[in-house]
């Protein structure tokens, strides 16, 4: 399934996260990851949402998001160049001193930092794009991963423009709009 990256700038109101996750659940949109944080502006938060689904579904999700009163702006990163990063914490089991050296070598290749040193475990912090993170986790797997936590992707548009207008859907015959619902076998409906 394809996925798309949306940044959603929202009013930092109570329940705003519930509104957004509820909207996705209610309308059967799939969230792969969602991260939220405050922004440089007071009262404004920013979310990066990775939505799974084909273009029609994600376009619909975006338009539904734009209707929410607390949503200030939706940025579709398909239309805007962006940088994205993910951060992960990985706790790896250590059996002996040899392993310690080997693991450190791998970590250096990934520019992973050790953030906690235990007698039997090390905790690494790695930042990067999704591919790098996944590759690091795969490299560590043989040693025995005890726990991981990923932040989910976060993204910003490139360039100096901080006031990116959300691109509204531009109606036109060039882009016939395909419905989001696949024709489903007739199911029992209600009176």
């Amino acid at each position: 399934m394809s996925e798309r990256l949306l940044s959603v700038i929202v009013q930092d109101e109570p329940r705003v996260l519930t509104r957004i996750s509820g909207l996705f659940a209610r309308r059967n949109f799939n969230i792969k990851s969602l991260s939220v944080g405050r922004t440089e502006q007071r009262g404004v938060s920013r979310m990066t949402i990775v939505v799974e689904g084909d273009d029609r579904v994600v376009d619909q999700a975006r338009q539904q998001l734009e209707k929410l009163v607390d949503v200030i702006r939706v940025i579709d990163h398909r239309e805007e160049k962006y940088v994205d990063r993910e951060l992960v914490l990985v706790k790896v089991r250590i059996e002996g001193p040899d392993q310690r050296v080997e693991i450190r070598h791998i970590a250096e290749d990934f520019r992973a930092r050790i953030v906690d040193v235990g007698r039997r475990a090390l905790v690494f912090e790695v930042t990067g794009d999704e591919g790098k993170i996944t590759a690091f986790i795969e490299q560590m797997r043989p040693f025995g991963i005890l726990e991981t936590m990923r932040t989910g992707r976060i993204a910003l548009t490139r360039g100096s423009n901080a006031e990116i207008q959300s691109q509204r859907y531009a109606p036109g015959p060039s882009q016939t709009l395909e419905p989001i619902l696949p024709p489903s076998p007739s199911s029992k409906e209600s009176v």
Binding site: Y169, P171, P179
Partner: peptide, 17 residues
């Protein structure tokens, strides 16, 4: 008036908000 209705359920050749 609601952009999210355009193309939601039927194949739409011209959606005008």
């Amino acid at each position: 008036i609601d952009a999210s209705e355009l193309g939601k359920l039927v194949r739409t050749h011209l959606g005008l908000r």
